[in-house]
């Protein structure tokens, strides 16, 4: 249900691609690691943990899709993005200031947490975003694996450590010495003798990681029906 405040705050909308995009305002922007930004904007619609939004900086460009990383109950919405210097949208997003306009779709998607089956969450890089939204919304996995090449890219590690303790594993595939496992997420999974076959596995990240991990899980006996994948397109 929308609150009165939400309905009042919804402004101009236009159709781009298959999305209605609504004029929105930036609340805050923070560079949390080199070239990695957290962007807060107004909450105009309710969202579920795991939802995505389509975002455009103006009416002329095609929107890009981002996972929300904020709690279902948060006052504002938040995304995590990686600055692509040659891109169209992210350089503009990286220079936004509070009060600036951007265009955001209604939240949507089906990468939603399961409340009945224990979950494993597996992410690389900014693919951690939907899992942060899930955690902040009160969902907890049996295990979270996060892969990154540098320690500063284990985003939200304090939140995850606090809540998940030893069930949060940072897989560091770079040369920097911080992490719980030194190697890629796929190497950690490959090294396991057994995986809980009745759990549900959520994968989020680049295509290669997702297909490699999916193949490994299937090879270790996980049914593909129990694997949900979200790839950065």
């Amino acid at each position: 249900m929308f609150s009165v405040y939400m309905l009042m705050s919804i402004k101009k909308k236009y159709l781009k691609g298959n999305h209605y995009l609504f004029e929105n305002r930036v609340v805050d922007l923070e560079e949390i690691a080199e070239g990695k930004f957290l962007l807060w904007f107004e909450k105009q619609f309710n969202a579920k943990a795991g939802h995505v939004v389509a975002i455009a900086a103006d009416e002329s460009h095609e929107p890009r899709i981002y996972s929300l990383c904020s709690s279902e109950k948060a006052q504002n919405m938040q995304i995590l993005f990686d600055l692509k210097p040659d891109g169209v949208l992210t350089p503009r997003m990286a220079s936004l200031k509070p009060g600036d306009v951007l265009y955001v779709s209604k939240p949507y998607g089906s990468f939603l947490p399961d409340t009945e089956i224990p979950m494993w969450w597996i992410a690389t890089g900014t693919g951690i975003a939907p899992f942060r939204a899930m955690l902040q919304s009160g969902f907890k996995p049996a295990m979270l694996l996060h892969g990154a090449r540098v320690a500063s890219n284990f985003y939200f590690e304090r939140d995850f450590k606090l809540e998940l303790k030893e069930n949060y594993i940072r897989c560091n595939s770079g040369s920097n010495g911080q992490g719980d496992f030194f190697g890629r997420v796929s190497a950690w999974i490959d090294a396991q003798d057994e995986l809980p076959l009745s759990n549900k596995y959520y994968l989020c990240g680049r295509a290669l990681m997702v297909v490699e991990v999916r193949d490994l899980l299937i090879a270790k006996g996980v049914r593909y029906e129990n694997i949900v994948s979200e790839i950065f397109f």
């Binding site: 680049r206 295509a207 290669l208 997702v210 297909v211 490699e212 999916r214 790839i231 397109f233």
Partner: peptide, 17 residues
């Protein structure tokens, strides 16, 4: 060269993008 889509039934997807 390769593909980002990661379809479960496709060899091309297995090489990533």
């Amino acid at each position: 060269v390769g593909c980002k889509m990661g379809c479960l039934f496709c060899m091309t997807g297995k090489q990533g993008f």
